[in-house]
Nucleic acid binder design. Sequence first.
DNA 1: TCAATAATTTAGAATGATTTTAAAAAAGAA
DNA 2: TTCTTTTTTAAAATCATTCTAAATTATTGA
Lengths: 138, 138
Amino acid sequence: MKTIRPFTHAVDRLNAAGLRPTRQRLALARLLFEDGNRHITAEQLHREATEGGVKVSLATVYNTLNQFTEVGLLREVAVEAGRAYFDTNATAHHHFFNDDTGELLDIPGDSVVLSSLPDVPENMVIGAIDVVVHIRNK
Amino acid sequence: MKTIRPFTHAVDRLNAAGLRPTRQRLALARLLFEDGNRHITAEQLHREATEGGVKVSLATVYNTLNQFTEVGLLREVAVEAGRAYFDTNATAHHHFFNDDTGELLDIPGDSVVLSSLPDVPENMVIGAIDVVVHIRNK
DNA sequence: TCAATAATTTAGAATGATTTTAAAAAAGAA
DNA sequence: TTCTTTTTTAAAATCATTCTAAATTATTGA
């Protein structure tokens, strides 16, 4: 029996996105996508790559995260001024943010629902809607 | 006829918050609170003060915004990595963010309602809930 | 295969926002 | 006043991120 696993391989994702599968991009894509959903900063990903023996510069990590975001492989989440988080789940969903630890967490499924939407100012359209639920230790 | 206007005077706000009403804090409090709700960055407030003839350093503007936030006179809103916005409406409410202009706007009244809340992870409590509706020109 | 061309990576400099430092100035208490 | 504490400040330091220009790598076409 064979399970359908779209984009199992990093190289497929890159090809589908029209990005050349370079050594660095492949290695970063593997770290990002091969192990379920992740929430990560550029520094964190760079450290992880370096510790895993992948030689890649911090500038390339930034470039790559931004490129992946542009083509829709990642979503950038704003939770704190000063730090950018990237989420490997690019579909619409919301987040817990642990104010104590700085950890970002998906809010599962539809457990947050916006029951009404505001009137949007004249000549404007709604893009993304971000809900961040700040949590801390009891 | 006399309208009840709590905290009309900056000095009252500072006293109530236990902050010494220094020249700088008073001037900044007036700019922030005497003219309806505002959404402002440190740089913006510093420029406004300077242009208005108030001599205050950028470091003091940062200090003051952080102190006001600590005592609950302001609320910090995270909409974009890299820039901190401060909102003079410290009560629970939500925001439009204009991705084109970087302008932050209150969403009026109860026009956004969260109809259900997610289960919070073990031993954690919910703090603030931030809803940011990104908008852009049609 | 071998240039020629184009895209990518990189180290390091530059930028922008914010914080820290240590000293001077201002405020409150005695 | 004078003493003590708090606040302000300029300047340096820090942190995240982007830019630059050169070196490397990938792709294309003969």
